[in-house]
């Protein structure tokens, strides 16, 4: 009786933990390293043959500052494990300008992505 109770309790706790963890998982979101001086305006993905393709738009909302920064796309498989990543790609964006970037995974097991933007210290 006590054993069943304990099993039920651990099962419930385990399920709650799993739910909590899945709630923490961030899907398809931009992450910023440093100050957020450029906005990730929009991003979407679609399947190009066997590979996942991502388009993203960055915008410099400031109309005077010229910003130089780098971004990276991390490629995740269905389990959320990072299986590949692009190099940090530099770009310069003038005031009020939008920049569109396209990246494609080169592995068929990629199902999700994460965009990371890093800004230099000023």
């Amino acid at each position: 009786m006590s054993l069943t109770k304990n099993t039920l309790l651990s099962l419930t706790l385990g399920s709650l933990l799993l739910l909590g963890l899945s709630g923490c998982a961030r899907k398809n979101e931009g992450n910023f390293i440093g100050k957020e001086r450029v906005v990730l305006k929009e991003h979407k993905s679609f399947q190009e043959g066997k590979f996942l393709k991502v388009t993203a738009t960055f915008e410099n909302e400031d109309d005077t500052e010229v910003e130089g920064m780098v971004y990276q796309v991390q490629w995740l498989d269905s389990r959320g494990i990072m299986v590949d990543q692009t190099s940090w790609k530099p770009f310069t964006i003038i005031g009020k300008q939008q920049i569109h970037v396209v990246d494609m995974a080169s592995r068929p097991d990629v199902t999700n992505y994460r965009i990371i933007i890093s800004t230099p210290n000023k």
Partner: peptide
């Protein structure tokens, strides 16, 4: 350091150029 970091030490053809070209 990060092997995939954007490198701007000189203007010569560098690791970032190699990686971005291949990608």
């Amino acid at each position: 350091g990060d092997a995939k970091a954007a490198e701007t030490v000189t203007a010569d053809f560098g690791s970032t150029d190699l990686q971005s070209t291949a990608e």
